[in-house]
Amino acid sequence: MLRPSHFAAVVLFALFASVVFGITQRETPRRMLRYGIYCFVLFVASAVVLSWVMFLIAR
């Protein structure tokens, strides 16, 4: 059984979802790559920020 950490799961999720978003939402390869990277960064950054927010609320 695979047991990734929460962060590893977030990164894997962001990677796969960003690839699909990049390819399907843009037309040229260059714009696909840029949009894919943008989505990946947004996914991971928002997960980190929300984690800190929840940590501070829980204290």
């Binding site: 059984m1 047991r3 894997l12 990677l15 796969f16 690839v19 699909v20």
Partner: peptide, 17 residues
Amino acid sequence: LLAASILGMFTLGLLMQ
């Protein structure tokens, strides 16, 4: 790329039970 992403995500999901 689409096949690798979707198959990868599905397979990892199954591997995580």
